[in-house]
Nucleic acid binder design. Structure first.
Length: 579
RNA sequence: GCCUCGGUAGCUUAGUUGGUAGAGCACUACAUUGGUAAUGUAGAGGUCCUGGAUUCGACUUCCAGCCGAGGCUCCA
């Protein structure tokens, strides 16, 4: 973030704190930093409603008018303690500081433990807005008390603030929960449960188109498809290590007459058994197994959000079993495949993240420092070789090895992982994966690459809805074409056209209601149908079409044959054309 | 799970000293037969999220629960 902007935002958060302390003297101060989207300040002992938020905003404007200066002062730790005697959270922060002199900022009567930086005076704060109230754990730890967090934003120029607020509104219009409901893509029913979306006919079309695309692409890349059960005996997951590393994220066990079963949270253990079902030769490697697998994860109910966080995940999953020498190429091929996928969907705003483990944390990660080091180095090398931009994150790996995640910012501004490629050096020992090498000897160095380039159906479609704002390209659109009759005389011909189109597997419906044409056009546009064709007496006689695309462009007198050729071609290529 | 806010027809919503509810869209019927974003008229549609408390009487007040949105921890 720009330094000047950071100063403005951080200073605005101080003004917020002053305002809250004046209106609600009993409130206790937490922290108030600048963040990407603005700033926040945490308070204890404070209950805020939307009405209160307006009041606080008004107070802030009043404080700014007072033209208070921000003065940095340095004081001793002892003096700081007396100054903060009524602020328990600030005192706790003070205790953690090792400095001898403590940096404070003074603005009028308000003094705050703070290392800055700040602007010189409140008069320079003009363009800010309080946005929302939320709960947040003290120091980000769920064992601590929950404080009240007030979010706001501030900018240097008024224009920037306005732009930010308009963008927020536009993002809300693209929200996948809203559009998913309006467009009939999915629904969530409380009798089924949270985080368990029901795919409606239109959503299912999108789901199947993506699946078809993935199958084609992965067939070409040498993946073989398999189908495995959604649950398995406890022993499978103790072998894999999901119990106990992953137990909290799994559904509770089910006792049956012949043992204890778990719903799976991952597809890999099942795939490892396919690897093992016969003796493998070096000629079999790399072996690539793919499945649209279904997994179940016990996410906390409060985290479930539309399709972005669910409890049943439909995963475009696959596992590549390879030798150490093959890792680089296989891993790199997967990244290239992901880039190809993203190109078709037109994704641009994403970045790679090398997610590393923490060798000190033996509860979370398998204890094998040597392998952690070497595999992380391999992944870094691959990323560098491909010349992609990437960040590195500590403590984000899987328990069995490091991964490369591909990160997106959702329309609502939240960072989410979309695709993931994981390197697994633990499975070979746990499952005894091996192959017979050229000399007829058994080699136990089998590495596994786990990958989900298209995320889960759930999250991926949520992203697609927001990415396209509901206006899907023709190849993905649930209804590709709608044919309208201009008068009742054209009804029969419209229905005949529909049959012709259907023979080419086009998803086409008709609107032959006795409504006005502009009404029917409006309905088709609101439903975000990419192509609307109108048939009146002229078209019927001349065997032509009047074609309207979703952008409002109209072409008259297009020959039926020409249109059908164009649209089938564009669907095959998964690329919209000028129809 | 925790914090804050919310829940009125399929959807969007109006409804203050507490007297069991209106509207627009969608739906159905009839009329209308049109040239690229709303033709007209009529009709049907409600356990005001659920349960309890207060009250002669609760959509409205209070309590509990369920569901939703945003946020925190977590995460594909």
């Amino acid at each position: 973030m720009d330094k000047a902007l950071e100063k403005i935002r951080h200073s605005t958060s101080h003004v917020l704190a002053i305002a809250v302390k004046e209106l609600f003297p009993k409130a206790k101060l937490g922290i108030g930093p600048a963040i990407d989207s603005g700033f926040y300040y945490d308070f204890d002992n404070l209950t805020i409603t939307q009405e209160n938020l307006k009041k606080i905003e008004k107070k802030m404007k009043e404080i700014i008018k007072r033209n208070i200066s921000f003065k940095k002062i340095k004081i001793s730790k002892a003096k700081a303690k007396t100054l903060l005697k009524n602020e328990p959270y600030k005192l706790e922060l003070l205790e953690d500081l090792k400095d001898k002199t403590i940096s404070f900022y003074e603005s009028g009567n308000f003094q705050d433990l703070c290392k800055g930086p700040h602007i010189s005076s409140t008069k320079n704060l003009k363009h800010f807005k309080l946005l929302s109230v939320a709960g947040a754990y003290w120091k980000g730890d769920s064992k601590n008390k929950m404080l009240t967090r007030i979010y706001g934003t501030a900018f240097i120029k008024e224009k920037e603030l306005k732009k930010f607020l308009i963008q927020r509104e536009e993002a809300e219009a693209r929200n996948h929960i809203r559009l998913g409901k309006d467009l009939g893509i999915f629904t969530i029913n409380k009798l089924v449960g949270k985080g368990l979306p029901i795919w409606l006919p239109k959503g299912n079309v999108i789901k199947e188109e993506i699946e078809k695309f993935a199958k084609e692409k992965e067939d070409q890349a040498g993946f073989q498809r398999v189908t495995t059960p959604h649950l398995a005996k406890k022993e499978l997951f103790t072998t894999s290590g999901h119990l106990p590393y992953y137990e909290e994220s799994m559904y509770p066990s089910m006792k049956m007459d012949d043992g204890t079963y778990y719903l799976r949270a991952m597809n890999c253990p099942h795939h490892h058994l396919i690897y093992k079902h016969k003796l493998r030769s070096y000629r079999d490697l790399p072996l690539r197994l793919a499945e649209y697998g279904t997994c179940y994860r016990n996410e906390l109910s409060g985290t479930l959000a539309g399709l972005l966080r669910v409890r049943m995940l439909s995963m475009n999953d696959a596992h590549t079993y390879c030798t150490k020498d093959q890792i680089e190429k296989e891993f790199s091929d997967v990244i290239k495949m992901i880039q190809d996928y993203y190109k078709v969907f037109g994704f641009e705003n994403y970045w790679f993240r090398l997610s590393k483990g923490d060798t000190k944390n033996k509860k979370k990660y398998v204890n094998d420092p040597k392998n952690w080091k070497s595999t992380e180095e391999t992944l870094r090398k691959v990323l560098k070789k491909l010349k992609v931009k990437f960040t590195e994150a500590e403590d984000e790996a899987s328990f069995y090895g490091p991964k490369v995640d591909i990160q997106f910012t959702s329309v609502s501004g939240r960072e989410e992982s979309m695709s993931t490629i994981q390197l697994d050096f633990a499975a070979k020992e746990r499952f005894g994966l091996q192959y017979q090498d050229k000399n007829g000897e058994m080699n136990k160095e089998v590495f596994v690459i786990h990958r989900a380039p298209l995320s889960t159906h759930e999250r991926f479609i949520a992203f697609l809805i927001e990415h396209y704002a509901g206006k899907f390209p023709v190849w993905l659109a649930p209804t590709q074409v709608r044919i309208l009759s201009l008068t009742d005389r054209n009804k029969k011909y419209v229905e005949k056209l529909q049959k012709d189109f259907k023979k080419l597997n086009l998803r086409v419906d008709v609107d032959i209601r006795s409504e006005s044409m502009s009404k029917k056009v409006r309905d088709a546009q609101t439903e975000l149908i990419p192509i609307t064709i109108t048939i009146g007496d002229k078209e019927q006689k001349a065997k032509t079409l009047a074609i309207r695309t979703i952008d409002g462009k109209i072409k008259f007198g297009v020959k039926n044959k020409d249109f059908l050729k164009k649209i089938t071609q564009s669907i095959e290529q998964r690329k919209d054309a000028n129809y």
